[in-house]
């Protein structure tokens, strides 16, 4: 086994031996299903209302993707702000607290192997987490009826939404990695990550009230504005660039912090 694979496997083993991942999975399923249910109710209400006022045009435009799935994907980002810090908090903080960092520092491996081995394992966990979301379009396909399309769910739009959700998780977990590398307290790591994500998210709201270039920059920095296109099924290269560059930035910070501990 190469050191990279060794770290990858060990991280996955630890992630699924401790209860933390299961709690996060459970909460994610619970909250996302609550959102799904409430959007389903909205959809029903919209159908009733447009039938009542005999707005046939509006009724024809109603579909599961716009009303239910894309709203769900946008809201998942908010769930991630709360849940992902819990998944990433232990990644370096625990190694420092339990003094197992000493093992990683005194065996012939590079800091890059440590950081990317751990990150690859984190992404594997996130793929499992996001895969839970497939339940919802499948439910819609099984039980839904559509007046316009042959398929009630537009899978292309849906898959693009999932990609957006995944990229969002890629970025948020990189933020978590950075803050977990600064401290040996998991709680502190989780809290700071949470506030950082919350701050980024608020930038989206703040940008609306700020005019000019500053507003545009603030808006660009917020993940809120980048999930929208994905959720609607539009692939915008700028959004992909945003998520990947934010992830890279925070991973570099984590790398520097871990490397710094080696020579501190």
């Amino acid at each position: 086994m190469t050191p990279f694979l060794g770290i990858f496997k060990k991280e996955l083993k630890v992630a699924f031996t401790t209860p933390v991942a299961y709690v996060v999975f459970f909460l994610f399923a619970l909250i996302s299903s609550a959102i799904f249910w409430s959007q389903l109710r909205d959809y029903e209400r919209l159908v009733q209302r447009s039938k009542h006022i005999e707005d046939a045009e509006f009724l024809a435009q109603l579909n599961f993707n716009d009303v239910i799935l894309s709203e769900l994907f946008i809201n998942v980002q908010i769930i991630f702000i709360f849940l992902l810090p819990i998944l990433t908090m232990r990644v370096f903080a625990e190694e420092r607290k339990q003094k197992t960092m000493e093992l990683l520092m005194t065996t012939p491996i590079t800091t890059g192997t440590v950081v990317f081995g751990k990150y690859a394992a984190m992404l594997a966990v996130l793929v499992c987490l996001i895969a839970l979301l497939f339940v919802y379009p499948i439910i819609l396909t099984m039980f839904g009826e559509s007046s316009i399309n042959a398929s009630v769910v537009d899978w292309n739009t849906c898959l693009l939404g999932m990609l957006g959700v995944f990229l969002c998780a890629v970025t948020f977990s990189a933020v978590g990695f950075a803050f977990s590398s600064f401290t040996d307290s998991q709680i502190v790591a989780a809290l700071i990550t949470f506030f950082m994500l919350l701050l980024l998210w608020f930038l989206g709201g703040a940008s609306a009230s700020v005019h000019g270039v500053v507003g545009d920059v603030l808006g660009f920095l917020s993940p809120l504005n980048h999930i929208q296109n994905f959720a609607k099924g539009v692939l915008h290269i700028g959004d992909v660039v945003y998520y990947l560059s934010m992830a890279t930035l925070f991973l570099v910070v984590a790398y520097r912090a871990v490397e710094g501990q080696k020579w501190a």
Binding site: M1, T2, P3, G6, I7, K9, K10, P108, I109
Partner: peptide
């Protein structure tokens, strides 16, 4: 096993 992988075995 983890220790062995870190040593490149």
């Amino acid at each position: 096993k983890f220790g062995a992988s870190l040593k490149g075995l």
